[in-house]
Design a protein around this nucleic acid. Structure first.
Length: 289
DNA sequence: AACGATCCCTGTTGGC
DNA sequence: TGCCAACAGGGATCGT
């Protein structure tokens, strides 16, 4: 199984924190300690966060050694020698893979980084909402400006939550999606967290009571951990590796997301849907007040 | 400053 | 059955 993973480590699913963390864990042992031998950035949009475009990324990465793989929210960060950081954001359709050089490429392969050891890292992103970049420490600060602490390993304490939500008018769902208070929640996990916390997504952030803020904060980690646990099963090529075929079972576990018109698993009420911050939000009008 | 709206992009889906 | 419009979403940016 380890060998199969090495030949084709691949993730398919809406990349939020659990998926990015799964990628990080999978990819790190395959890339840490290796150097980039040759790099191609084939789509200008993929390089848009680097002022110098594709050539800047290629030039900066060539010859650099990957020290480790890190993550903040949905940003995957590879620390390099010479104080550079390799950053990958998957957007909504981005995927990372580690493949042998000879393996055929998928369509929409916008980044290829050949490493020492006849393997290469590939970034596939049909909708190009994601990006790949290489940044100095100063540039990285700008890239991550406004990206809050990581929802899994840097969850702010209660006082910070209270302060950040106080008097805020936007819906709590919008505040969670904005990545500023905490980073890593996307549209799916934000809805799931709010369901677990029993808070309606349209509630103004500042309207949450003390106990609701407590519940919200406490709901984040379990939901992400659950996603992480089944996130491992969304590995597209692990599907046939697992005898019980558990691939993708997280979708079946969702309490509210994508379940408009279906019954709430807790109370049987019909799940509702509305648009918040330009995104579909799903909630149980009975469980979430 | 805060906040809502708009835009980017293509694979998938649903209606006719 | 086939075509095409609508839809999906993260985050930058713009307008109010």
């Amino acid at each position: 199984m380890a060998d199969l993973l090495e030949t084709h480590a691949n993730i398919e699913s809406m990349p939020e924190l659990p998926e990015v963390e799964t990628i990080r864990r999978l990819l790190e042992p395959l890339v840490a300690g290796r150097r980039f031998v040759e790099v191609q950035v084939r789509h200008p949009r993929t390089a848009r966060r680097n002022e110098g475009g594709p050539p800047e990324i290629e030039d900066r990465l060539r010859g650099r050694r990957i020290l480790d793989l890190d993550r903040r929210g949905k940003f995957l960060m590879g620390h390099l020698d010479r104080d550079l950081t390799w950053v990958v954001h998957l957007g909504m359709s981005g995927r990372m893979s580690s493949a042998r050089v000879a393996e055929p490429e998928e369509p929409h392969t916008h980044f290829v980084g050949r490493l020492t050891g006849r393997r290469e890292v590939r970034f596939v992103d049909p909708r190009t909402f994601g990006f790949v970049g290489v940044f100095t420490d100063t540039e990285l600060e700008r890239v991550l400006a406004g990206v809050g602490p990581d929802a899994l390993i840097g969850l702010p304490d209660l006082a910070v939550w209270e302060a950040r939500l106080a008097a805020r008018l936007p819906p709590i769902k919008a505040l969670l999606l904005a990545q500023r208070i905490v980073s890593g929640l996307g549209n799916i996990y934000a809805d799931e967290v709010l369901f677990r916390a029993r808070i309606a997504p349209y509630r103004p952030g500042g309207s949450l009571s003390h106990s609701e803020v407590v519940r919200l904060r406490r709901s984040i980690r379990p939901v992400l951990e659950a996603g992480l646990a089944s996130g491992g099963t969304t590995l597209s090529d692990m599907a046939y590796l697992l005898p019980d075929g558990r691939a993708g079972d997280y979708l079946e576990r969702l309490a509210v997301y994508g379940r408009e018109g279906e019954w709430c698993r807790r109370c049987g009420t019909e799940i509702m849907r509305m648009t918040i911050a330009g995104r579909s939000s799903f909630w149980c009008p009975s469980c979430q007040q």
